[in-house]
Amino acid sequence: MQTFIQLGATTLQIGAVYVLFSLGLTLIFGVMRIVNFVHGHIFAVAALVVAYLLPILVGGGLAAPAAYVVASACGIAVSLALGAIIYLFGFRYFQRDLVGSFILSIGLVLLLDGVLLHVFGGAVRGVPEIFPGSVNIAGAQITVQRLFLCGVAFLMAGILYWTLGHTKLGRALRAVAYDHEAAMMMGVPYARIAFFGFLIASLLAAIAGALIAPVSIVSPVIGTDYLIKGFIAVIIGGLGSVPGAILGSLFVALVETLGGYYFDSSYAAIAIFALVIVVLLFRPKGMMGRA
């Protein structure tokens, strides 16, 4: 029983970041029909900026939590600026063009790989502990940092869910995802809504990056791993589906946790792929996908 609670807690911790990450992917796909491989780099930039600034700020005499908040704000701002530039000068011209936008995103991935390696160097960075200590919940040991991560991630997912359901912007996003031409005829400003959708998705990725920095080792290639898992999560859940992304992320995290506990963690990558194939055999559009 103890083991199950601990495994469940681990699943939620890993899954929390996947949820944030894949919500962005599914939002961008839903609104713009774009497969955005740059998402991993927007995530990585935020994590890298936090890992870069934090030791400097702490060294300058700031308390660790305050330094973390400042560094995170900077990281998220840099990532959002990057997202805005990428949208305005690139993806804006490739909406609903699956192949074209994908090729552009691959080009940007390679380009940013080169840039990040230049700016931050290839070395992995460790980030000092922000919130020390751990708590005991129903017999499972969870560090306070991880608990904080989970809390923020699920809070953000909740806010997004509420925004999509209850605000004017959310309704516009859903209308555009459902049928963008009909939405435009109803007076939804598609170009502006798509831009907002892209920024919200980038914001989610940036928050995920800032959250992961203190609990993981940060390197310029950190995004690729999350990109693979995030896309698998949205394939399982159904591209464009918000509940699908959440469900798929938790599913992937569960397989990874169980695989890592009972076998070797690298077998989890193969197990997850097998899972995708099984899902596709029965539901070619994912569990929550629309035909």
């Binding site: 796909f29 497969v35 699956l98 994908f102 693979i228 896309f231 698998i232 394939i235 591209l239 690298s266 077998y267 990558a269 193969i270 997850i272 792929f273 995708v276 194939i277 596709l280 055999l281 070619p284 559009k285 994912g286």
Partner: peptide
């Protein structure tokens, strides 16, 4: 995998590449 199309087919190929590499 060809039962799926477009983005699904593309992304499965991506996942397959990484799984085979492991």
């Amino acid at each position: 995998t060809l039962r799926a199309k477009g983005p699904y087919f593309l992304l499965i190929g991506f996942a397959f590449t990484e799984a085979i590499r492991v």
